[in-house]
Simulated scan of single mutants.
Amino acid sequence: MTEYYAIGVMSGSSLDGLDVCLCRFLSEQGWSFEIIKSETIGISPEITTQLKQADQLTGRDLALLDIQYGRWIGNVINDFLKGLSLPISVIGVHGHTVFHLPGQQLSMQIGNAEAICVITQAPTAGGFRGMDVLMGGQGAPLVPFGENQLLPDYQAFVNLGGIANVSVHTHQIRAWDVAPCNQILNHFAKQLGHVFDNGGHLASSGQMDMPYLAYLRSLEYFHLPPPKSLSNQWSAQVLSNAPENPADGLYTYSHFLAEQLANDLSQVQGKVMLTGGGAYNDFLIQLLKEKVSPDLEILLPAPQLIDFKEALIFAFLGLMRTLRLPNVLSSVTGAQKDTVSGTLHLPG
């Protein structure tokens, strides 16, 4: 039995915090895991604003923000590890996505892994999408490999983060981005004076806006077969014909999102795990349960896994990179082959 300790770091497109997860992985006829410590650290308003505007920066300013954000993450990890003395094999960092243009073989995440390595003095892996898009893939989603290895009892997974994605683990592992999720729901909630729609209560007070629903259904992306993935900027298309009443926007978009998720899960039988911040949206989850086949069992795991599954898996992807094992699946992304992805930095 071989034991490893790794840290996963994840900040989603909704920028509602930096998830840091310290994990213990055991290799013995397969992989098992334990989450030792996990925490969501708030990102300062200054950095949040800079990250939201990162795609509009000059090349120099973007490079400087990359280093600044990486150094901040490194210091966060050092604070997170105070009082612990475990041998860290690797830190796996997702980073903040600035550009995601797989058709042009570009997917750029900032939060400089080399800066994190210097600050923490621990091996650090980042840039997990780059190799895959250069091999003709979407570079996303990345988590299905970890789901398959660490959570083999489920037939499908739905992550309701800034962007909702689905992965199906049947004969062949496939995954894709379904639609913007918390990016849109939080936008409408903020128009109503809330950071997010707690439990979906704001959405439940709205009414269906049929022209908006028809517009959403008409968007080409929702009719494309996988593999496919979305950039953060794509949410602007979803919002361009939004209703004047934000509550109606929430109600309509929640119904539309549940509809899309149910369609994408229509060929699945068995257990489906829901994770991400949207898993706490009772209104959305109830809509999804009403729309899916009775052959599906929609399950919410313990809150720690709801909140930190993606960070857990980035720790695992980083570990696979240090072991020089494939960690991104071509069946998911459409790349020419499975890849050992991520750029690994070692302390001097």
Rank of each mutant, 00 (worst) to 15 (best):
V9F: 00
D16S: 10
D19V: 02
D19C: 04
R24C: 07
F25K: 02
S27L: 07
I43M: 15
I43G: 07
Q50Y: 01
K52V: 04
Q53A: 06
I67W: 00
I73G: 00
I73R: 00
D79M: 00
K82G: 01
I88W: 02
F99L: 08
P102E: 04
A113Y: 01
I116L: 01
V133F: 08
L134H: 09
N148I: 07
V158T: 05
A164V: 11
A164T: 13
V166L: 13
Q172I: 13
V178A: 05
P180Q: 14
Q183A: 12
L185R: 10
F188R: 06
F188E: 11
A189Q: 10
K190M: 11
G193K: 02
G193A: 04
S204C: 12
Y215V: 04
S218V: 13
S218P: 13
A236S: 15
A236Y: 07
Q237Y: 09
V238T: 15
N241C: 14
N241G: 08
A247G: 05
G249W: 12
V268Y: 07
Q269D: 15
G270I: 10
K271E: 04
G278L: 01
N281D: 12
D282Q: 13
L284E: 11
K291M: 15
L296N: 11
E297V: 07
E297S: 07
L299D: 00
K309T: 00
A311Q: 06
I313E: 02
F314Y: 10
L317E: 06
P326C: 14
N327M: 14
N327G: 10
N327I: 14
V328N: 07
L329C: 09
S330M: 12
T333M: 12
Q336Y: 01
Q336S: 10
L344W: 08
